[in-house]
Design a protein around this nucleic acid. Structure first.
Lengths: 339, 339
DNA sequence: AGTATTTTTGCAATCGATTGCACATTTAAA
DNA sequence: TTTAAATGTGCAATCGATTGCAAAAATACT
């Protein structure tokens, strides 16, 4: 007797003395197959330990049931939460999630995108790198009409769905908060203008100042890469000014933390001497001393929503559905660093 | 003229007036193709924007160039670091990484594993859930001789490669450290015995006590699920003992943090009244006040190594290579919580 | 030139599932 | 009973690349 190392529909067909097409249809619950044969086939399939060959099915149907994800770094909490959300939803719909990280480098991002493209993912969810100042690599997808969805950091020149948070308002709320607690000289450590998220945060900041008729001071605006090191440098520049700020809105929690460290080293009291607010609500923010005021971004929810949106578009890939830009609200969390 | 929405080797063959097989061989640098035609084909391929159909190739060659990863939660720093390492290496070798999370639930883990199996991943890297007390679902892989590799949390009944850290020694080092700084009554908040990592940490703890002839006190050993809540409860039980401990080795940083919070709420000084040590070196551990002593596990390196190991096994899938268990050293980081 | 040898190329089957179309069977309607 | 409609099943092509085998072409050797 012949051994069947891997059962195919043809083996089932042979055993059941019906055609492979019937088996295929029976297994996919096609309504053109009678209840009787369907049951017969499914039972036999189970009995013989049949497992469908996803590869073959995908080849034929020209889908891969896979969505690609590109993020700057997987090990950053916001992104891993988002991925968690993506993964949770995708899994329920039978989609796989292939992830890749750009390390905030444009060439690496282009590389990832191309690989995902060659692997024929059905759609791509991406948060672009800090260096991304062109969209050639992304055109690959939009040109071929493969759904692409940006979350958080997006490329404005590509028409597509976007899941964002309200950075403008967040920047505004933070600054308002600093004003209301009595800060007079409010500085902002911003991220690269290239990314709209940072630009918007900055504009929210400026708007809040304008509203209470505080003139923005050029020296109070630092633009950096928002790393720990750059943050510390920027903050030390700020505090070395003849008239240093008494409130600083840091572009993210990492720079806020390095500001905090600077203060500890230089015996500055937070928030008495200078109030600090960060951005993102990293896991450490609630537990540092003093605890760090910040803005909470719903990472998991964004990911979940992103997955919903893109799978929906994959499955109804009509070009008719207009692109949607969903802007989620954020939550200002006031902690001791600015109380 | 006919439009070619997606170029295949057949289109190339047609244009170049050679056979598809030659094209296929030329593209894969097969040595049986002359330099001349090879160049000709490759240039044309580039010119026409040919991209190989990975699906078709994989179907034929019965590989998927994909490795599956199952972790309890993606958004935990240790795991996201490991994934980052896996991803970085796999990418260099042209492998994709499909990730899935078990949420520390056995049934979800079994589900993930089965899906990956059906998707015909070439290998699987897994860190098992806290509930995993059986190995049926993993047998799927070992039975079919598909490489499986455990990292950190492993299933002892499955023969396979493993990348671990030296939990026993870590537990030992932590306890030694507490002893040396003068602690007399040392407690341990342990994780479920089901997982060897926790068992080993506990045994390291016991070994250290034994060495200095401290008799283990039953009440000083708490076994929990190591969540924030359970940690707090366990710690409060410890501190409510008639003779509370003056040093606690917490099973992870999360429980150590909740212990810290308990101390703050109850006006206990750390480390004067009770010294604390955690495990894993979470991002927050260095920045809480007091900063948390802990053990650093090389997450990224473990992931990177895991990917190397499994890809190596996939590519030389001879059964002859004996399974390997790699145990990486950890680093005890002494911070203020136990100084 | 003629044969042996090596190099290069092509034919056709294969991987396993899907699907349009046609044919067969059953059921309903006239 | 006949015709029409509905339901169930099978044939064969298809998705795109790979590969064993054989044939053709190029080269080497008497």
């Amino acid at each position: 007797m012949k051994k069947h190392p891997e059962i195919t529909i043809h083996h089932l067909a042979e055993v059941l003395k019906i055609s492979a097409s019937t088996v295929s249809r029976a297994l996919s619950d096609n309504k053109r197959i009678s209840e009787k044969t369907r049951k017969k086939v499914q039972e036999k399939a189970l009995e013989m330990g049949y497992r469908p060959n996803v590869l073959a099915a995908n080849l034929r149907s020209k889908r891969s049931m896979t969505i690609g994800v590109v993020v700057p770094r997987i090990d950053r909490h916001f992104f891993s939460s988002a991925i968690s959300g993506i993964e949770d939803y995708a899994w329920t719909k039978g989609f796989n999630v292939i992830i890749s990280q750009s390390n905030d480098l444009l060439f690496k991002e282009a590389n990832c995108v191309r690989t995902l493209f060659n692997n024929r993912v059905d759609g791509i969810i991406i948060s672009i790198s800090m260096q991304t100042n062109e969209d050639k690599h992304l055109k690959l997808f939009s040109d071929k009409n493969i759904p692409i969805l940006f979350f958080d950091r997006y490329c404005p020149t590509i028409e597509s769905d976007r899941i964002l948070v309200d950075d403008y308002n967040s920047g505004y709320k933070i600054t308002r908060h600093l004003i209301e607690r009595g800060c007079k000289r409010i500085a902002h450590i911003a991220g690269p203008e290239l990314l709209n998220i940072y630009k918007n945060r900055k504009e929210g900041y400026l708007k809040a100042l304008e509203e209470v008729e505080i003139l923005p001071v050029k020296e109070y605006l630092e633009v950096t890469g928002l790393t720990k090191e750059e943050g510390k440098l920027a903050f030390s520049r700020l505090m070395s000014l003849p008239n240093p700020p008494d409130g600083v809105f840091c572009g993210n929690d990492t720079t806020a933390l390095s500001a905090l460290e600077y203060c500890q080293d230089h015996k500055l009291r937070v928030p008495q001497d200078v109030a600090l607010v960060g951005f993102s609500d990293e896991p450490f923010s609630a537990v540092v001393t003093p605890s760090l005021s910040t803005v909470k971004q719903p990472g998991y929810e964004m990911g979940y929503l992103a997955a919903q949106k893109i799978i929906d578009r994959i499955q109804n890939n009509s070009v008719t559905i207009p692109f949607e830009q969903i802007v989620l609200p954020t939550e200002l969390i006031i902690r001791n660093s600015s109380k």
